[in-house]
Nucleic acid binder design. Structure first.
Length: 422
RNA sequence: GGAGAGGUGGCUGAGUGGUCGAAAGCGGCGGUCUUGAAAACCGUUGAGGGUUUAUCCCCUCCAAGAGUUCGAAUCUCUUCCUCUCCGCCA
């Protein structure tokens, strides 16, 4: 959520910022609503004040044993007026909140213009793309004889699910272990385990609701639960409605969870293989920091994700997303894209975003700044470190040999019980 | 799932219709005293919002929502959560 004060003090800038995101903002209608809000709120509060004063008078008169009937008569006509005014105010406030909840975050000024992923800017390139003396296979062909099974998954569930058996299942687990160990032991994160079903408030807090309900799996319950699309949701919401003490800042969490996405808008995209699934494993990094620290923390968190790719010796590039490709809640996002020999393309394996105070305002997540003694909104930052399913694909494809074997990367061997080749 | 007890400020905890945003204690902050510190004493100490240049002032918030009332932390209803016992269970 954007700061409501911006709408009152600098509406022109709001218009300009939202236009950068191609968000159609009717500022004239908004301003009219805002003016109405002001009038109604002032009137409501005056009426409330009047009611409070008169009620106190009645209380005092009664305490003295005076006749309160004349006072009661006076106050009669207030109830209706006040009630009407309060209802009107509530309606206006709800309308404004609904409007503002649907507005995307402001982009960081460094974010390049552009409409889709073709306009993203490469800012770093790491590793050597492997050159094979044979036709490289993709993970589907490589996995066929090794326990990567889409048919069984389709039978048990549906398309866009995968079953992993034997060494491949273990390899995915090894990848997750490596990530968790690296982030806790070397990057200073605390590991955390969280629920995979969350309530609507949590999804509102991180910005998936109300706008992106179609991307989520909803579980019929009263009240409804949703399967998490990313660990970002439960982990970030830890600080919802919390004022974090300065001594506990920054908060750094690493969390492994499965992620569930309906992929409603992705019919026909990436239908082959396990690039795009309804369920996948991910290790997520989340930082809760002060506004002052947030730029630095975002850079660092992205590097933490990059370190995993480096350890696995997987070639990747780092992209700064353009305006059109940056997510709703984010002000600035780096995508890490790993090289997939089977597709001869770089594909997203991590997305690291700085949400600034956008999620924090929705969540009322604050920290107490010792300099002012006052609660201030935190900044939230998160990124995949990394998506484990896609990491598995990347390893399969980059570490293949002519016979179709997959070699285990050096750093994973200790997690694989000595297994060198699958 | 059944029965019972509860949810009050950073924490403990009082408050069953009328200046209660809320006693008291602890903690925090400021001060007196001290070479310094502790102890003692004094003062201060929630969040959000409106208005304002600012102060003042005003509104809202005692799990959440609805209701009764001139007036609700206090009464009624619904929901959620926590604890205890029983049942079931990895």
């Amino acid at each position: 959520m954007l700061d409501p004060r911006l709408f009152r003090t600098d509406l022109e800038n709001v218009k300009k910022q939202l236009k950068l995101r191609s968000f159609n903002f009717d500022s004239v209608a908004f301003e009219a609503l805002e003016n109405k809000r002001k009038t109604v709120q002032i009137r409501t509060q005056e009426l409330q004040n009047e009611r409070n004063k008169r009620s106190k008078n009645i209380g005092q008169a009664k305490a003295k044993g005076e006749d309160i009937q004349p006072l009661l008569d006076q106050v009669q006509d207030y109830a209706d007026q006040l009630n009407q005014s309060e209802n009107e105010l509530t309606d206006i406030q709800q309308e404004m909140t609904a409007l503002m909840s649907a507005m995307p975050n402001f982009l960081d000024e460094i974010v390049p213009k552009g409409k889709d992923e073709a306009d993203n800017v490469e800012i770093d390139l790491w590793g050597k793309i492997p050159v094979f003396s044979f036709q490289a296979k993709d993970h589907v062909d490589l996995g066929e004889s090794k326990g990567l099974d889409f048919e069984v998954a389709a039978k048990i569930s549906s398309a866009r699910f995968a079953v992993l058996k034997g060494a491949l299942a273990r390899l995915q687990r090894a990848i997750i272990q490596l990530m968790l160990d690296t982030h806790t032991d070397e990057h200073g994160y605390s590991e955390i385990y969280v629920p995979f079903l969350v309530n609507a408030d949590s999804l509102y807090g991180t910005g998936q609701l109300p706008k992106f309900a179609d991307d989520l799996f909803k579980v019929d319950n009263d009240p409804d639960f949703y399967l998490i699309p990313t660990a970002e949701v439960p982990v970030t919401n830890i600080v919802r409605d919390v004022i974090v003490e300065a001594k506990d800042m920054p908060l750094k969490f690493v969390c492994h969870t499965p992620c569930f996405r309906s992929e409603a808008g992705a019919y026909g995209r990436d239908v082959r293989g396990m690039i795009r699934q309804h369920q996948f494993e991910k290790v997520e990094l989340v930082q809760i920091v002060s506004a002052e620290e947030s730029v630095k923390a975002h850079e660092e968190l992205t590097q933490h994700a990059e370190n995993i790719l480096k350890k696995l010796k997987l070639p990747y590039r780092k992209m700064l997303l353009c305006a059109g490709d940056t997510g709703f809640s984010s002000s600035k996002t780096y995508d890490l894209e790993v090289w997939l020999p089977g597709q001869e393309k770089y594909r997203e394996i991590s997305s690291c975003s700085n949400f600034k105070d956008f999620q924090a305002r929705r969540m009322q997540a604050r920290w107490r700044n010792p300099e002012t003694g006052k609660p201030e909104l935190v900044h939230t930052i998160n990124g995949s470190g990394l998506a484990a399913g896609r990491t598995l694909i990347a390893i399969m494809e980059n570490y293949q040999d002519e016979q179709g074997y997959i070699h285990i990367p050096e750093v994973l061997k200790s997690y694989m019980g000595g297994l060198e080749v699958i």
